[in-house]
Design a protein around this nucleic acid. Structure first.
Length: 337
DNA sequence: GGGATTTGACCGAC
DNA sequence: GTCGGTCAAATCCC
């Protein structure tokens, strides 16, 4: 395996170069009458480039020393914040039933687990389901000792059809009812994991939900994009800081390690990335667009709004720190080799 | 009718 | 024995 420094440098340069390219392209599109979709796609790519870079820095830092890295993204008013959770004990249980993996120790080593916290502001209509770009099916709810609110258990809808074993747990905070802690486990291996805009639910239901909610998924407005352009900043001078914040609120992306050992930045569903040239694979897992819809879905994980237009914007302070990598993670893939 | 959710039961870990 | 996580039948919803 190549030294970390080598691939890190190469990948970092590649990611940042791509980010610059996308930014230039976006600038061009802003002065033209191009579609919001195109601009949004470029925006997402820029974000992905930054995040990939930060992820690499974070990962490399974790090898030799504990390095805290926090990425902040976007939001407009009434932010939904993603705070990173304290380091967990990593790949612990919860992944006991992965087919084809009889060795428990192996499961622990290869199943990523990370936590996000999402704040929901009921006043701005963001209460409702969190849509991270994946389709989840709730399979259980449990009262947790010491917790006021029950914990909800979700698994990928395509668990059976596509053998996708990603799961997530949603726990409402006792102290702050508007705060939800989302614990992701496993990675999406379903085909929807690579789609830019995977169905989060059946088209019918999705439509219905959007109907019932005044906060449908929307493309960012030009103004929002302009503001984003002006205000987006990634503070790399203080990577140890607990937060890196951007005054602008916008859906952020982050990622996970997929089964292939590739980092999968979570991209907004509105951004198709089938041919993304990065060695990373675009994935929507944990994406932060918000399709908050119904009250009944309030316990679903809440994610940020991908929209910067009419929808209430949520604070998306979150960090990649919660993405924990097993030191023994198999980096023997083409990318990591 | 089909898919999603609810909820009590079951199981394994501690 | 307790607790967290999952299963699966019953129920709900579109």
């Amino acid at each position: 395996m190549e030294s970390n420094g080598t691939w890190e440098q190469k990948t970092l340069i590649s990611e940042l170069t791509q980010g610059i390219g996308f930014a230039k392209e976006l600038k061009t599109h802003l002065s033209e009458t191009s579609s919001a979709e195109v601009r949004d796609m470029l925006l997402q790519r820029i974000l992905s480039s930054f995040e990939n870079s930060l992820f690499i820095l974070n990962w490399s830092g974790s090898i030799g020393q504990t390095q805290s890295l926090q990425l902040v993204s976007v939001t407009a008013e009434s932010p939904t914040s993603f705070n990173e959770s304290p380091p967990r004990d990593d790949f612990d249980g919860g992944v006991k039933d992965i087919p084809g993996q009889n060795d428990a120790s192996k499961k622990r080593k290869t199943t990523p687990k990370w936590t996000d916290q999402v704040r929901v502001n009921s006043e701005n209509g963001l209460e409702g389901p969190h849509d991270d770009g994946y389709s989840w099916r709730k399979y259980g709810q449990k009262d947790i000792l010491g917790a006021k609110h029950p914990r909800s258990y979700y698994r990928c809808t395509y668990r059976n059809t596509q053998n996708c074993w990603a799961t997530k747990q949603v726990q409402r905070s006792d102290a702050d009812p508007t705060l939800f802690e989302i614990n992701y486990r496993g990675i999406h291996t379903c085909s929807y994991g690579n789609q830019a805009n995977p169905p989060t639910t059946s088209p019918k239901k999705r439509e219905q939900k959007e109907k019932n909610n005044n906060n449908p998924y929307q493309q960012p407005s030009e103004e929002a994009l302009f503001n984003f352009q002006k205000s987006l900043r990634v503070d790399t001078q203080d990577l140890d800081a607990k937060e890196m914040t951007s005054p602008f609120t916008f859906p952020s992306t982050y990622g996970c390690i997929n089964n292939a050992g590739n980092y999968s930045p979570f991209l907004s569903p509105a951004t198709p990335e089938p041919n993304y040239s990065s060695p990373f694979q675009i994935n929507n897992f944990g994406g932060i667009q918000n399709l908050q819809r119904s009250e009944s879905d309030f316990t679903e994980i809440i994610s940020a709004n991908t929209s910067a237009t009419n929808s209430p914007i949520v604070d998306l302070d979150f960090s990649l720190e919660s993405v924990e990598l097993d030191p023994n993670f198999p980096f023997n893939t083409p990318f990591f080799s």
